[in-house]
């Protein structure tokens, strides 16, 4: 129990840090952007197409050490949280570590100028979805007694799983390392308006309600179906039987008809 409390306290501290640091970074960024983009906009900006990817720019910009340190500190927190998710026996601990991972990823989103998505990440993922997980963990309160059971059959499956995962990681990283182009996510080549507009609620909302209106509406339909499906699936079977019986018998017709018939 004390361990869970320590983890909760750590996650709370992390969340508070995010809340404190994010506005400071944003404000700081505005000042810097003004300085950088005031008079010296890189020529790559002129054509407007993929300025960061154009390979023939004379000096490909490298990320600064400070930015890399910040990025891999936050990213390392995310990785540690993810590792904890798949290794902890207690599901409550796993859920809390997943919340930590999501908060760290929200910070990475802010670094990628995806402000709207960062807020959505904290609200929807760390807030709503994880609360749902916590509720289900409370219903199914079974700590795995043998998370790493020693049976040759399961060990074969796990070996295949780990081998597949390691293979995937090695492939990913070799492909990334072999890519010759330095794709720096720099601010050179961004006009000031574009920079301030990028990733905001307004920019994403404009796209969602004009060009991508149909997918947006499809998502609303999907959510409606998910709500109904979850209700139907999670409802106790006895209740369904009772309702059917009550509907069949003349005495109980009034109540179920309200919900069911229309």
């Amino acid at each position: 129990m004390t361990r869970v409390r320590v983890i909760l306290a750590a996650l709370l501290a992390l969340g508070l840090t995010v809340l404190c640091v994010a506005p400071a970074l944003a404000a700081d960024g505005d000042g810097d952007r003004a300085g950088v983009n005031g008079d010296a906009i890189a020529p790559a900006a002129a054509n407007g197409e993929l300025p960061a990817i154009s390979g023939d720019s004379p000096a490909p910009q490298k990320p600064g050490t400070r930015d890399l340190i910040i990025f891999w500190t936050v990213g390392g927190l995310a990785i540690l949280g993810a590792l904890a998710v798949i290794t902890r026996k207690n599901p409550v601990t796993a859920v809390m570590c997943l919340v930590g991972t999501f908060l760290a990823l929200a910070v990475v989103y802010i670094m990628l100028l995806a402000h709207f998505l960062a807020v959505i990440q904290v609200l929807v993922y760390a807030g709503a979805i994880m609360v749902l997980f916590v509720f289900v963990v409370m219903i199914i309160n079974r700590e795995e007694s043998d998370a790493w059971e020693l049976s040759w059959k399961t060990w074969i499956g796990r070996g295949v799983g780990v081998a597949a995962g390691v293979f995937l990681a090695v492939r990913f990283i070799t492909i990334l390392a072999r890519s010759t182009r330095v794709l720096g996510l720099s601010d050179a080549g961004w006009s000031r308006e574009e920079m301030q507009h990028f990733g905001t609620t307004r920019a994403v909302g404009e796209l969602l309600f004009t060009r991508y209106l149909v997918p947006f509406e499809a998502v609303s339909l999907l959510l409606l179906i998910a709500v109904i499906g979850a209700l139907v699936l999670a409802r106790p079977h006895e209740k369904v039987g009772d309702a059917a019986d009550a509907a069949g018998s003349p005495a109980g017709q009034a109540k179920p008809d309200k919900g069911g018939a229309h």
Binding site: G75, L83, V160, I173
Partner: peptide
């Protein structure tokens, strides 16, 4: 202080997290 992360670093972080997710789902 605008951030300047290189794309490969971000992709590597994504790849690592995805791999951890796959391992977790399989084992």
């Amino acid at each position: 202080m605008s951030f300047f992360i290189s794309l490969p670093h971000t992709l590597a972080l994504g790849a690592i997290l995805f791999t951890i997710g796959i391992i977790g789902a399989l084992i």
